[in-house]
Design a protein around this nucleic acid. Structure first.
Lengths: 240, 240
DNA sequence: CGACGCTTTGAGGTTACTCAACCAGGGTGG
DNA sequence: CCACCCTGGTTGAGTAACCTCAAAGCGTCG
């Protein structure tokens, strides 16, 4: 449950100086002044997670909020019979713990090696109360998340398997671009099963659809990613 | 586009005195003091919409935010080829225009006769800047919306048609309860097509599944609604 | 080398979709 | 008053997209 405490490497402290944080500009912290960053830095606890390590589980009491600084996190909900829906992948700069209730609404675990800043909820709440512009920024993030969620609902409810995959790949490319990692080769650190559970498909359908897209020369499948060979055609499919 | 201006009845003013607003306690306005309510009242413009009238469309410049005081609104996204996904139904007390960008992220139109308070965006933004606790309340609403959206993603991606309907009916019952309208007979002012577009199904599947539930004596279909005859069984299906 | 985890491929089945007809209620107009 | 239509809902038959089950590749690691 609190394995993140165990995972918190002592030596990680230096890397997470808020002033030099790579993820800062893409995160909520971008709204803070240098002196505010110093107070933030004092309460930030750098944590690291191994691939597949649990950050938190749904229903768990929320004692911390997290700011991802490196790696990818999957956020998901589960049904008692094992069906899983991934509601989002968190990338560097993303903020976890928005729900503001005293317990997490989703579960989260690391897809690959993840680094994050953990803020104790009490100190964090005090800071938010004192800094309206931070709250404002947080609210902007929340509404952005909501917009993404609505887009995902459209995808889950009304799109075909091929459209789902194409939208997913283009979406991931855009999201990597936002954290300064634009490339025609989209990194996909998550498994096929993760992709399936994000798109409301089975692993077999994901695999088949990707190979079909590869046969069409729309994409090229590479280790841990996909190279987009025909972005125009993909954009057309995504728009339709 | 701005038909809401046309629809704004002159006589509606009296009904929307913020101090006597029926929807207030369930809305963002619950966080305001009496004197703040008076300043709010001064900037609120009461508007009414006929069934099927448009409140706003996706991409339109957002000049107002809305607080629903009566009736039901559907919020949806469309694909160019006509496929529609309803991302939510707004009930009295719900707040529309959270997105905070200068344009709406979804379209909205009235399901039945709707009354709302419209706040000009500029005055509204000023008020939010001046009242951090209002922003806080707004943020709580946004995160609550996000939680609902994530639950809906689970439903859209991983549930069967029957589960979708059962969850929908139980969810509507709960939501009506929150605005003080709890009843074992759930009002469904929206059409079967609306329900289908909300649950990621076709109208035929919705109709068939509802009649099957009625044959099972799980529900009883009544005009403009459904009576829940076996809530325990429904809760079991929804949990599974 | 063999075991394991993950992915891909194949064959067959099922759920939900498509297309089409039918039904019921509520106007409307002859 | 009743035929007519129009909208929204239900029902039926056939289909297709996607799922399920099963087996075979294919790197990685002990």
């Amino acid at each position: 449950m609190d394995c993140h405490l165990v995972n918190a490497g002592i030596g990680a402290r230096a890397e997470c100086g808020c002033l030099t944080c790579e993820a800062r500009l893409a995160s909520v912290c971008a709204s803070l002044s240098p002196e505010e960053l110093i107070t933030l830095d004092a309460m930030a606890r750098p944590v690291r997670f191994e691939p597949k390590a649990t950050l938190f589980v749904q229903g768990q009491h929320a004692d911390c909020v997290y700011n991802i600084t490196a790696g990818v996190v999957r956020l998901y909900k589960m049904l008692p019979d094992g069906r899983r829906q991934i509601v989002g992948f968190a990338l560097p700069g993303d903020f976890l713990g928005l729900s503001m209730h005293d317990s997490f609404g989703v579960s989260a675990d690391a897809v690959d090696a993840v680094a994050a800043c953990a803020f104790p909820l009490t100190a964090y709440a005090r800071l938010v109360d004192a800094k309206p512009h931070l709250l404002r920024r947080l609210h902007e993030f929340a509404t952005h998340e909501l917009t993404l969620a609505q887009e995902q609902m459209l995808l889950l409810g009304r799109r075909t398997a091929e459209e789902k995959l194409v939208c997913f790949l283009l979406g991931m490319q855009q999201r990597w671009a936002k954290v300064g990692k634009f490339s025609v080769t989209v990194p996909l650190p998550m498994s096929r099963q993760d992709i399936a559970d994000f798109l409301g498909l089975t692993i077999e359908t994901v695999s088949r659809t990707l190979t079909r897209l590869a046969k069409d020369k729309t994409i090229l499948i590479v280790p841990d990613g996909v190279r987009l060979m025909n972005v125009d055609h993909m954009a057309l499919v995504a728009a339709a």
